[in-house]
Design a protein around this nucleic acid. Structure first.
Lengths: 140, 140
DNA sequence: TATTGTTATACTCTATAACTATA
DNA sequence: TATAGTTATAGAGTATAACAATA
């Protein structure tokens, strides 16, 4: 019982499996993926508000509040009042957080990096392009 | 504050966002992604045991037990004793389940299909290749 | 004794709704 | 009145550990 090809289903399944597999891995300090991703955003873009982070990650504000608080408790980010808008909060990487990002990135034996390193340049190119396309899909 | 390119981080973020975005969509009967994925496997490969499904989906057996039970309650799959091995269970699509798969697939306005349809053939090719690579990553 | 599946339990992530504070 | 963030609550998904049944 084999049905016709289903690129959509194949892609859905592949994304789901990959996301689950990646989630099962822990970077440096045992940080879960959503938390580490926030650190990556802050490292890439500088200080951001929880609202901006929620938009970037495409999650609802309460989810980001929780993630940010978790990181703050670990001392990896700091929350500060917004200079001009009392409603907003500014989240920034601490020294510890910056070190955590860089240390994790430096460790080339990080699981996903290891997987990519084992691939051919052409395959890495495909995945890099796919990353952009997936990002676009996620923003639709 | 913009750091050096980080293909690994970009890919991780993209996969996470895409998985979350896809999960937020509901196919035909409002079926969640993990459940629909099991239907796709059964439709593709025919009847399977919970253990086989767990291996295919890279989840632990208890997770699959739960998913299969949910589908059985909905009448989309049926559980039957294995003909020769009393320990095993055979899960198969019911008529309703088959109809559900085909109806969902036929609806081209399914969210992800719509996204793919809006892309260029080249972009679809990249994603199709990426799906294979992601599958390989997930199995590592 | 090893394997298949299930039950029990707990944790993480996410969402919606309601609330507070500020603009 | 609108916006940013938080708190409260709930639900989905997954995992590990322990158990039952069968090989």
């Amino acid at each position: 019982m084999t049905s016709a090809p289903d690129p959509t289903g194949d892609l859905r399944i592949a994304i789901g499996q990959a996301a689950r597999r990646i989630r099962a891995e822990r970077g440096g300090a045992g940080l879960a993926d959503p938390q580490y991703t926030v650190l990556l955003w802050l490292n890439k873009s500088g200080p951001l508000t929880p609202g901006q982070l929620a938009d970037l990650e495409r999650v609802q504000p309460p989810s980001m509040t929780r993630t940010v608080n978790c990181l703050a408790e670990l001392g990896l980010v700091a929350k500060a009042p917004h200079p001009t808008d009392g409603r907003q909060v500014v989240v920034s990487l601490t020294e510890t957080g910056t070190a955590e990002v860089e240390e994790t990135r430096r460790r080339r034996n990080t699981w996903l990096s290891g997987q990519l390193d084992a691939m051919t340049p052409e395959e890495r190119r495909v995945l890099a392009e796919a990353a952009e396309l997936l990002r676009r899909i996620a923003q639709a």
